[in-house]
Each structure stands twice: as structure tokens, then as C-alpha cells.
Design a protein around this nucleic acid. Sequence first.
RNA 1: AGAGAGAUGGCAGAGUGGUCGAUUGCGUCGGUCUUGAAAACCGAAGACUGUAACAGGUCCGGGGGUUCGAAUCCCUCUCUCUCUGCCA
Length: 428
Amino acid sequence: MLQLNFIRENKEATLAGLRKRYFANAEAVVDEVLTLDQQRRDTQRELDDVLSQSNAKASQIGALMKAGDKAAAETAKAETADLKARSKVLADSLRQVEADLQSVLVTIPNIPHSSVPEGRSADDNEVVLEHGDKPQLHEGALPHWELIKKYDRDGGPIIDFELGVKISGAGFPVYKGKGARIQRAMINFFLDEAIKAGYSEVQPPIVINEDSGFGTGQLPDKEGQMYYVTEDKLYLIPTAEVPITNLYRDVILPENQLPVKNVGYTPCFRREAGSWGAHVRGLNRLHQFDKVEIVRVEKPENSYAALEEMSLYVQSLLQKLGLPYRVLRLCGGDMGFTSALTYDMEVWSAAQQRWLEVSSVSNFETYQANRLKLRSKLEGKTQLLHTLNGSALALPRILASILENNQTPEGIKIPDVLVPYCGFDTIS
RNA sequence: AGAGAGAUGGCAGAGUGGUCGAUUGCGUCGGUCUUGAAAACCGAAGACUGUAACAGGUCCGGGGGUUCGAAUCCCUCUCUCUCUGCCA
């Protein structure tokens, strides 16, 4: 959520930012916010005045009672009726204005950072860099959804989509044998690397309540993308960002605890309503997948340096895995609702001849912190901190890329860094 | 799931209708003392809103009510603890 006083004091910058995102009706929405804000403050002031008078009367009555002047007290009491009626009306309208203001405010996305490129869609994202050589595959090379069947052992493919359908439905694969072990290997590798890089590990719950969904910006509006347990009013997490960032909801962090650098592994659940199409075969898009996530809480002046550091960190993982990748700076039209600047990391999937997104690293500045009420006392005053997060990494597409890129007629070579974690070096 | 108890400032813990934003202890910060530290002593310190700055207003788990006046009384929701039951 944007800060009201920012919008108030930077109307033009706000509008420019929203235009960069192709946010519809930016002018009308901002004007509505400013009007409601003014109404709120006027009403607030009027109410405060009435309450002030009312408080004065009450203590006056108290004093009279104490002095035993019953008659004077009764007279004073009679005078409070009008104040009481007025304060009730004002309090009601204040509540209404505040609710209206809030409901408009939550529909406004974050303001993009100045380095965010112009553009409407994913086609306009800026390629920051490309790293590594795309492998030349042998004749008859297969996409990963064929490869997993080719290496059928122990009575089934190493990743079994059919079996997952039986248990749950489409998009919930069952990993078996070496398929399962390489998953576990990646999780441990990613966690160990993050710990070496100074992150501390957390294991958060994977269901969250409504307040948490609001804190990081999934709610309201994106409830359709999350699985929901109606009985207990809990959502399955779409990413560990939600529970880990919400660890710091309603917190005023002591300055000496900054920066916060957390890493966590969780499964992630996404309904992906309406996003199934031509390119979602195999591991490309799933309802449940595993991800290791890094989350940081930073002082405002450090957040962009932290973002660059996170980007380099994620790239270091991809380099260690030996996967060709590129880094994108997302354009205004393609960026997530809550982000101010996002880098996407994509790996090359050699058999599909496509780039697959495996990480998204974002700085939310104060957007989430404002919803979370995540603050610190810095230089004598309480102020909002900056939150950031990034995938490090999401497993399925990494696995898809490893399977495809490392295939030879003899088998699939496991990246060296994973071998100690897997206990085998080829799938054959 | 059943029965009971409870929810107050960073923590502990008073306060059961009238200057209570809230006694006190611990912790924290500043100072005195000390070569330095500890101890002791003195002092400071909540959040939100609002104002040019004061003032003013709100906040004792959330919401609602009674009252001139609520941390204190009533209703309701949520959560926590103890016991019983069940169970990784």
C-alpha cells in the first residue's frame, strides 16, 4: 500500500508511476484518494473537537460529584446530550470515510523505480545480461516430459504425472526414485548455499490467515489464485514470501537487528486459474511445487544494494548448476502489483528452446511494510522499512532445464554440485 | 472435542467506574561516580492521528453496548494456558 502522505505530497510522481504500469484511471483514482483523505481529516478534526469538549464536561461532572454538588452535576449532564449525538454521527461518518479510503488505496499498485523500463507486456522487458552457452543437443533429444518416461525404473517414470492425477489432479506430480532424490538434493543445496551467504533458515507454516495474505499484498484481490481451507479460513501459501515476510508484521525492529536475511524452503500452491495454455506441459507449470525463498528486511537506504546482491546471489546458484540463464528487468506493465523493481532470472530449456522463469527478485520498498506495519526506530523516528524477496530457487523448471540440457544418448548428467547431495551422478 | 482460567506498555505484573497512557519490578538508554567496568544514585523513554509548531484526539486482545465518564460493568468474537479426551 502506498503511503497517503506520499501521494498527497507527490501527486505528479504517483501519476507518472501509475501510467508506467498502464494502471487504468490513474487520475480518477488518485483524485478520489485525495478527496477522501481531505474528508477524513476534516471529519477527524471535527470529531476530535467534539470529543475534547465532551471529555472536559465529563471531568467537570466528576469534580462536581466529588464536591457533592449534585444539582450542578445534573445540569452539566444535560448539556452533554448534544455532544454525544454529534460525536456518534461524526464517528460513523469517519469510519465510513476511512473504509472507503482504504478500499481505494488497496487497489493502487506500487510506484515503479526510475530504472524500470517502459513497456506494456513481457515483450518489453529489458534483457540485462545473458550468461552461459546454450547446449547443442544430439539428434533425437527429448523435452523433459518425455525424458522422465524414458528413464522409467521401478515400475514408473521418475516424475509421474498420471499418478499425481489419481491422487490429487493435474499439476500435482509424484516424484519417484531418482526424481525424488534430486528434488531433495536441490532443496538441501539451495538451503546450504543461502546459509553460507549469511541467511538464517526458517521453517514457516504453509497455511496463512487473512491478515498475512493482506500484509504481503495477496489479499484482497488475488484470493482466486490461492487454495482456501474454508473450515478454518486459511490459505495455502503461493510462496514462502508470505509467511516469512509476515513474521515481521506489526513489529518495530530494533536497529541492531537489521538487516534481516531469512531463507526458507516450502512447498508452494497455486491454483493458476485461467493460466493454462500451450506452454504448460510437464514441469513448466504446476499447482504444487517446491521453492527455496530468500527474504530480506532492510533500511531504506540499503534496499537497492541488497536487491543487486540478491540478484548476484541467485545468479551464482545458476552458475554453479551450469545452466545458461538471462536476467530481465521487468517493464512497468509486467511487474507484480506490489513491486518497485523486479529482476526475473530465466534458464534456457534446450529441448523446448525456451527461457523458463526460475526466480523473481523484487524490492517492494515500503509497499508491503506499510501494510505490515513493519518499522524501525531510525535516527530518532519510527519509520517504515523496506522488504525484498527472491526465489533461490524454484525447483521444477530448474529440474526441467537440467534434464533437457544435460541429456546425452547415454543418460542425463547431474550437475557436480548436486552429486554429493544426490548420491548419484547420472540418470540412465 | 469437553470443562475451567486468562488476555494490560520490550518482559513480568498491579489496577474492578472519575486527571489511568496507566503503580511497581526487571530490562533498555543518558548522566554522576570509577583508570575502565560492576554496584549505587540521578534522569529519560510507547504507538497512531493531527498541527507550521503547540493544542487536541485515539489506543489496556478485536468488535459492539451501558454511562456525563470504562483498562475497570454487559454482550460477542478471536487467541492463550490448565485439566480431560483424541492423536503425529
